Simulated scan of single mutants.
Amino acid sequence: MRSMSFLRVVLLMLALALLSGCGYNQIQQKDEATKAAWSEVLNQYKRRADLIPNLVNTVKGYAAQEKEVLIRVTEARAKVGQMNVNASDAASLAQFQQAQGELSQALSRLLVVTENYPNLKSDQSFRDLQAQLEGTENRITVARGRFIEAVQDYNTYIRQFPQNLTAMAFGHQQKPNFTVENEQQIQEAPAVDFGASQAPAAPAPAAVPPPVASTAANPAVAPAN
């Protein structure tokens, strides 16, 4: 009886040692790291979405006639808010990236349009929103970069021997990441440089140099030998 209990303890300890040596614990840690990194990506995208209603309302107060642009931004934000993204599913992640890219493009058009409204550009609330939007875009870039690194670390680890056997035994598969095409689509933050859309000033006319007397054209002033 005692021998059976002792044998069970030995087998349990052996199993735990094998699981630890084959990377099981590390796989769990890296899996959780990717989930945390993705949560931060969603957190920053949500922060941007929360800024948009205030931005739209501020612009509407000065440029209500830009109805089409305002509607596009609102619709793009609504589409993003309705998505249930699964970062472990490549198709779901691709749809999420596409929706975020469409929202970035709509914001870009909105901010370019505001160039035609000097009073809006000088409004303090609009300038504050602009600064917050710039900061959010930077945070999105950082969070997305950390997620990419976490997924790369996880995928690389579970493909190595003997971790690949452990991953296969427990059903751990490679995670999708931001693809190059989609990454290029959403890489650029919405344009917030209002001076960029201004037409370049016409070059000033070249100054006409004063006439210079030519000794060849006026023999009367030719120097004497």
Rank of each mutant, 00 (worst) to 15 (best):
K46A: 07
V41F: 01
P223C: 11
R48P: 02
I158S: 08
P211C: 06
E188N: 15
A196W: 03
L110G: 09
G195E: 13
Q185L: 14
L11F: 08
A131D: 13
A91L: 04
M83G: 00
A213I: 04
L70Y: 06
Q26G: 14
L51M: 07
K60Y: 07
A206D: 09
L12A: 15
D31L: 02
N225G: 14
A33V: 00
F126K: 07
P118R: 05
Q152T: 12
G61P: 04
P53L: 04
K60Q: 15
A49H: 13
Q163R: 10
L133W: 02
D128M: 10
Y45E: 10
A131G: 03
E102G: 07
T141Q: 11
E134A: 14
R159S: 15
A150T: 01
Y154G: 00
A217P: 02
V69Q: 12
V221M: 12
S214N: 12
R144W: 03
Y157C: 06
K30P: 01
N218Y: 03
N218K: 14
E68Q: 15
S3Y: 13
T34L: 00
Q95D: 13
N155W: 03
A201I: 02
V221E: 15
E149M: 04
A189R: 07
M4Y: 14
V59I: 13
T114D: 06
N225C: 01
I186H: 04
A196T: 10
R77N: 12
V80C: 09
I158M: 08
V56Y: 03
S20E: 08
T114W: 05
Q29F: 00
S214D: 14
Y45S: 05
Y154D: 01
S88P: 01
V212K: 14
Q97W: 00
V142W: 00
A217E: 15
Q95N: 15
